[in-house]
Simulated assay, not measured.
Amino acid sequence: MRHRYQYGEDPSQWGELFLPGSAPGTAPRGVVVVIHGGYWRAQYGAELGAPLATDLAGQGIAAWNLEYRRAGNGGGWPGTFQDILAGIDKLAGLAGLHNLDLRKVVALGHSAGGHLAVWAAGRDRPGRPGWAGTRNDGVRLTGVVSQSGLLNLAEAERLNLSNGAVANLLGGPSSEFPERHREADPMFALPLDVPVYAVHAEEDDDVPLALSTSYVDAGRAGGVPAQLVTVPGDHYELIDPDTAAYRKCRELVLELVV
Rank of each mutant, 00 (worst) to 15 (best):
V229C: 01
A86H: 14
R220E: 13
I35V: 14
G37A: 12
L100Y: 04
D10K: 02
R128E: 03
G45H: 13
S12Q: 13
G133M: 09
R69E: 14
R182L: 08
G38N: 11
G164E: 10
L102E: 09
N73Y: 13
L159F: 12
A57F: 02
G171V: 11
L211H: 03
D89I: 05
A165K: 06
I239L: 06
R123Y: 08
P241K: 14
V166Q: 02
D83M: 12
A156N: 08
L252V: 09
V139M: 07
G130N: 10
G133Y: 14
P126C: 01
A198V: 01
H98I: 07
L94R: 08
W40T: 10
N152K: 05
G87Q: 07
G30Q: 03
L85F: 08
V229L: 02
G79K: 06
V216E: 08
R103L: 05
R41T: 14
Y44I: 12
V106E: 12
F177G: 05
E16V: 04
L17T: 03
R140G: 02
I35L: 12
D217S: 07
L97M: 10
W131I: 00
A95L: 05
G76V: 05
G172D: 12
E179A: 13
A92G: 08
E237W: 12
D204L: 01
L151T: 07
R69C: 14
D240K: 04
T142Q: 15
D206I: 03
D242K: 07
P129T: 09
Y246E: 06
H115I: 05
P78Y: 15
H200W: 05
A112G: 06
C249N: 14
N136M: 02
G15F: 05
V199N: 02
V33D: 09
D234M: 04
V194Y: 02
G79I: 06
A112V: 03
E255S: 10
G37R: 11
R41E: 15
G109N: 07
G223Y: 03
L94E: 06
Y68I: 12
R29N: 01
A117T: 05
P51D: 13
E202F: 00
A71Y: 11
R220I: 06
N152T: 07
G74M: 15
V258P: 02
G75E: 14
W40M: 09
R29F: 00
I61L: 15
A245C: 09
C249H: 10
G87D: 09
G127K: 09
I61V: 15
A189Q: 07
G37D: 10
A62W: 10
R158Q: 14
N152W: 03
E157V: 06
D185W: 03
G30L: 02
K248N: 02
Y44W: 14
Y246N: 03
G109E: 08
